Simulated scan of single mutants.
Amino acid sequence: MFVAAKLLKVGYNQAKKRKANKEAQFQQPHPNYTYPNPYPMSEYPPGVAPGTNTQYINPEPPAPPISKGAKFISMIISILRFLQFVFGLTVIGLYGRDVHHDHEDDDTYHSKWVFALIVGFLATSTAAFHMILPFLKKRVNNSGNPKLHLPQFVWEAVLCIIWLTVFGIFGKMYIGVYPTDSSSSSSSKRDSTSSSSSSSSSSDSDSTTSVLGDASKINRMRHAVWIDLVNLLMWVFTASWVLLRWLKSRRAAMTASLDAEKGSQI
């Protein structure tokens, strides 16, 4: 009995020592041991540190990818803006030449030519602004405000109206009109039998020349009329495109508001 009691006491002491050693190893790990970090810092969002409550953080959704059709239309519009800029400068050069000659001759500026210069300047400035606008959007990281589509359409519609006015004014003056030399020679061939008719045609051609200018000016203005028409067509196209963008953004806003109302009712 004494020996059995002694063995039980020794076994109890050994078990107690093992338990104490295991607890000590758990509380004081090896100095070279490092616990693995299940969440490395590289995977944290920017501006968020460990221990931050990210429950209410709502990151911006990624922008949807641009389709090939949208890229193609954007490229066409960019080319049109460049052509609007170039043709606007061409109009300024064609009509500004006559205004410059009037200034050298101390003549009164013709209001029609000055009006054409103003229209060309407004169109050129607008086209230049639209050419610079994509670079500004990239710099400020902004894709554009749909609320600006309607004012943009209104302005481009005004440009279409004044381009139509310029084309109407100078088209009425110069379409079908040819330089004095050719008109006088053809009239002399047709009316060689009657001297009275030739004298009247020459006087009419002289009056036309005095009003519309010399042969070089008439040729230049006849070309300018068709350039005015090209400008009108380009601005009508871009104004229609802006109108379609505004209608699309308005439809998307209405759809989003309806979806929000349905969600609130549910």
Rank of each mutant, 00 (worst) to 15 (best):
F2Y: 07
A4R: 13
L8H: 06
V10H: 15
G11R: 07
Y12C: 05
Q14N: 14
K16A: 13
N21M: 05
Q25W: 02
S42K: 04
Y44P: 02
P50C: 08
G51Y: 06
N53C: 09
P61F: 11
P64W: 02
P64G: 15
I66Q: 11
K68Q: 14
K68F: 13
G69N: 15
A70K: 12
S74K: 08
M75G: 04
I76W: 04
I77W: 04
I77S: 07
L83Q: 11
L83S: 09
Q84I: 14
L89C: 13
I92K: 10
G93L: 15
L94C: 06
L94W: 03
L94F: 08
Y95N: 06
T108H: 06
Y109P: 01
Y109M: 06
W113Q: 10
L117R: 01
L117P: 00
F121L: 15
S125Y: 03
A127L: 03
A128F: 09
F129W: 11
M131D: 01
L133P: 00
F135E: 04
K138W: 06
N141I: 09
N142C: 08
S143N: 10
S143R: 12
G144A: 03
H149P: 00
L150M: 14
E156K: 12
E156F: 03
E156V: 00
L159S: 00
I161P: 00
I162P: 00
I162D: 08
W163A: 14
T165L: 10
T165D: 06
G168F: 03
F170L: 06
M173L: 15
V177P: 00
T180R: 13
S182Y: 09
S182N: 12
S183Q: 10
S184N: 14
S184R: 14
S186F: 11
D191N: 14
D191I: 01
D191F: 12
D191Y: 14
S194K: 07
S195R: 04
S199T: 02
S200E: 11
S200L: 07
S201G: 01
S203G: 01
D204Q: 11
T209M: 11
S210G: 08
V211H: 10
V211F: 12
D214V: 07
A215Q: 09
S216Q: 08
M221W: 02
V225C: 02
D228L: 03
D228K: 01
V230Y: 03
L232K: 00
L233K: 01
S240R: 07
R245S: 13
L247A: 10
S249T: 08
R251N: 06
R251Y: 05
A253S: 05
M254A: 13
A260S: 09
G263V: 12
S264W: 06
S264V: 08
I266L: 13
